[in-house]
Design a protein around this nucleic acid. Structure first.
Lengths: 165, 165
DNA sequence: ATAACTGCAAAACATTTGCATACAG
DNA sequence: CTGTATGCAAATGTTTTGCAGTTAT
């Protein structure tokens, strides 16, 4: 971590403030509270967890405001929204941290991160060949981690069967 | 399309039948109807669209059965489930068609497909370096297609703003 | 002052579940 | 026959919406 969190937090608060000002939207304490909570908790949180954390931290916000703010933060790219295969979206801070992709353990649901520069080339080539203006991507690798801490849940009903061998 | 649909359909029906038999599960007409409907409609459908198509085709199934069957078909890898950023899952036939990734237009929501062999190498390297057994992946590129047919919806509220330039 | 934002609760939406009935094995 | 699968409707869990009251500008 090259930049201490306080520095990052300060920067993103200013960026968010400016974003709101330019759009003629209000700078409310609730909005900054959501931004702060997300940047203080490093990880991939869903909206409801974030909501609970704010509430137990003594901050009186509503779920609606949390969702609304996460939308704003996603729009100005200070936060990234991920859909990891299930219905519930997860959010992650996106400023001052290296761009990366995700590795999901199907046993323990843990999220790991990795980088591979080849993704950039893939993106550029596809963009060119298919005449598509690419905005962003999401690459998720699903599998089984080999950590001791991983429960490695046994498959329900015995051996996993797959028609394609 | 190298293999005519009838051939593919026949094959997948047999594969599904065998899968069910091995698991001691019943081969009901509803299950085969879902499989058929999905293989006849080439594209990326959500469960409810599939349900409607079946109903308007005169087949009496329930939503519950459609979901249940899609789960079975996903388990035996005859069907792939995708989560394209929104809350609603989409399903696609996965047997006898080349493996590919997806390109999503943020304006018209159209889904395009592409292949890039480098993805395989990325997957292998990550697997090795991070000691992870990779099962499958999903790569989605989001952006704007440049087709005439694309509505290219103007952004609500004027120019798109992005804090990061 | 006033339009935008908030909290709350209700609505919407996709998916899952419970249970009585139907039917494949 | 028997237990598994089905249809239906109600329940669930996440996100969105409507509205009366609050607040940043």
């Amino acid at each position: 971590m090259a930049t201490p969190l306080t520095g990052v937090l300060n920067e993103v608060e200013h960026l968010f403030a400016e974003f709101l000002r330019e759009r003629g939207q209000r700078q409310t304490p609730e909005r900054f509270a959501v931004l702060k909570a997300l940047y203080e908790s490093d990880g991939h949180l869903d909206a409801d967890t974030l909501y609970s954390q704010l509430r137990s931290g003594g901050i009186r916000v509503s779920r609606a405001t949390v969702y609304n703010t996460l939308e704003l933060l996603t729009e100005c790219r200070l936060v990234e929204r991920h859909q990891f295969g299930n219905r519930q979206a997860k959010y992650e801070r996106a400023y001052g941290f290296r761009q990366h992709d995700h590795l999901l353990c199907l046993d323990c649901n843990e999220v790991f991160e990795f980088c591979d520069p080849r993704l950039q080339s893939v993106q550029e080539m596809v963009s060119e060949v298919l005449h598509f203006e690419i905005n962003h991507h999401s690459l998720h690798l699903y599998g089984h981690c080999r950590r001791d801490a991983c429960p490695n849940l046994p498959t329900a009903g015995g051996t996993r069967r797959d028609v394609r061998g």
